[in-house]
Amino acid sequence: MFIIREALIGLYRNGIMTLIAISIMFFSLFLFGLFLVGTFNLFGIIKVAREKVEINAFLREALQDGARDELIRKIETMVGVKSVEYVSKEQALEEFKREIPNATSLIEALKTNPLPPSFKIKLKDAFTSPDKVEEVASKLNIFSEIETVEYGETWIERLDQVVRVLFVFDVLLGIVISFASVFVVSNTIRLTVLARRQTIEVMKLVGATERTVQAPFILAGMIEGGIAGAISAGLLYLIYRLITIFFVKYYFPTIPIFIGMFVFGLILGFIGSKASVKSTSMEVSFATSYI
């Protein structure tokens, strides 16, 4: 197909500009991808952390099975409560020994088990903010069987706010890099069009439609964008593999990132070249070159 051939010739003849355009686009898309992956992972951390938000309600004394089950039912019907789990004195001791192994001998010296039984109460996602947790906790205090209520993990809310800001930043960055990419593509394609003006002149002379005249240049822009997108996805993947090997595993949707970066590059390339080829090709008239 002559369209593909002309597109490749155009890119090749303008080799340096093509490389510069691909490099700038690659860097923009890479930066964008980096922030996106980062944001996604913080989202992931928050989601896991939210599931860990819990209230520990310590009981005054061990309850009979019947009384205990009734209390569990009452708590379960409270607004915002996802689940209630009973932790007996023995389970609490086991957990304590597991979490602080050094203290085992100390506990054994006591002979009796000093840990109270408790309820481990998980909250629904919408109730994991500090004020909501406090609200549920204060309601728990009403039950006379419950002696004290403990809760923590307010850092999640702060992280949540950071991610929200980061997300807005991602969107802004996306817009900025889109403009930058469209700008560089439209400029390189403009130069390509001007360098190929003789070919365009002949095409118009022999009756090629405007669409046919423009197609190779639009394809060239899309090739630039597609290459930049693919390379940036490749580098993101490489970084992901290296970090996974040497540090920590993190969330990286490989296929969506490859497809997303590639398609995003194609779209930016298309918009950039489309924008410049129309105006530039119109400037090329074969009437200008003779008397």
Binding site: F2, V202, V206, G207, A208, V213
Partner: peptide, 9 residues
């Protein structure tokens, strides 16, 4: 050059 006139149409 001659073929080009046909290709582009």
């Amino acid at each position: 050059n001659v073929a080009f006139a046909l290709e582009v149409t």
